[in-house]
């Protein structure tokens, strides 16, 4: 056996090297994304002013005197995301509370796959649903109340996007709430608190970092969501407070800039990379905060399952 050791050592080292190379690919990918976006974005900012990009209120590509002020685009993204979060956070969190605290084992085993189905539906399907079912429904409802709604209303996108994010928030919150040690619940119940009070006063505060982390993850998903808004939101960069009006988002403008037949080095096309850079930076920030919070939670309660 001894004489085989050196050969074993040799293959061992080669295999180990292969594994290290594989692990490095993920890092290369992140930097490739970052650099490919940054280089094109820099090219864009060499042609157009960065200051106008973040403060200008007119976005009119494709014409001779094209202007690239992204404020209305950010406003639209913001509006749709807020509507989505207003729906997803309460419903997702409450569903998670019911599943982890009240539901019996059988019901839980039945409900969890259902939510997983909801999570597995492709976003293009949600987009079709938003554009052909929810948007006309909202227009009809608004007509009933003598309001005027656009067929590309921010509200329709927001509602469907909110529903899309429910499983993201509920499944992570569910895991976090279940990770809160039972001893805390028992202590609270022993002091005479009932189930509802125990959840509100003891379990939720303990799980709060995880819940915030889930919310941030949902937020980052909402900001980067593309298909729903491409299919159901407007194209026009419209600065308004009215959720029934059509608004556009960062992702819609990225897609619109890149599917056309523009030359690759025109500002019209490159503006997509400038918007992509903003999206990357914001979601990266949200993800890092979210991951740090969940790490702290894990260390505090010593759980490995998250």
């Amino acid at each position: 056996m001894l004489f085989k050791t050196s050969r074993n050592q040799y293959t061992e080292n080669i295999l180990k090297l292969l594994l290290i190379i594989a692990a490095t690919i993920s890092i290369i990918t992140t930097f490739a994304i970052l650099f490919s976006i940054i280089f094109e974005a820099i090219e864009f900012f060499e042609m157009r002013s960065f200051w106008y990009f973040i403060t200008g209120t007119e976005w009119s590509p494709g014409i001779e005197d094209s202007k690239f002020g992204a404020v209305p685009i950010f406003a639209g993204t913001f509006m749709i995301t807020i509507i989505a979060m207003l729906i997803a956070v309460p419903i997702g969190l409450c569903s998670a509370i019911y599943m982890s605290e009240y539901a019996s084992h059988t019901i839980r085993n039945l409900l969890k796959p259902m939510l997983e189905i909801l999570a597995g539906i492709p976003t293009v399907v949600y987009g079709f649903f938003a554009a052909l079912t929810i948007a006309p429904l909202i227009v009809e409802l608004c007509e009933y109340f003598n309001l005027e709604a656009s067929f590309n209303s921010a509200l329709a996108c927001g509602i469907v996007m909110g529903i899309m994010i429910i499983p993201v928030i509920s499944s992570l919150s569910d895991d976090v709430i279940r990770a809160v040690p039972d001893s805390q619940r028992r202590a609270s119940l022993a002091l005479g608190m009932n189930m509802g009070e125990t959840i509100v006063a003891v379990v939720l505060p303990a799980a709060m970092p995880g819940i915030i982390s889930a919310t941030l993850l949902g937020l980052s998903k909402a900001l980067g969501e593309t298909m729903i808004v491409v299919m159901a939101a407007g194209l026009r960069a419209n600065l308004t407070w009215n959720p029934l009006d059509d608004m556009t988002t960062v992702t819609v403008r990225i897609v619109d800039a890149l599917v056309g037949d523009h030359a690759f080095d025109s500002p019209d096309t490159l503006s997509a990379f400038a918007l992509g850079l903003v999206l990357f930076v914001v979601t990266l920030l949200l993800n890092v905060i979210s991951l740090t919070l969940i790490r702290k939670f894990k260390q505090k309660y010593k759980v490995n399952t998250l």
């Binding site: 994304i33 976006i37 980067g224 593309t226 990225i254 897609v255 992509g276 999206l279 990357f280 979210s290």
Partner: peptide, 11 residues
């Protein structure tokens, strides 16, 4: 895992 998928398209 959490980066918006559209950015992979840009890459």
């Amino acid at each position: 895992a959490a980066i918006p998928s559209i950015l992979f398209g840009l890459l």
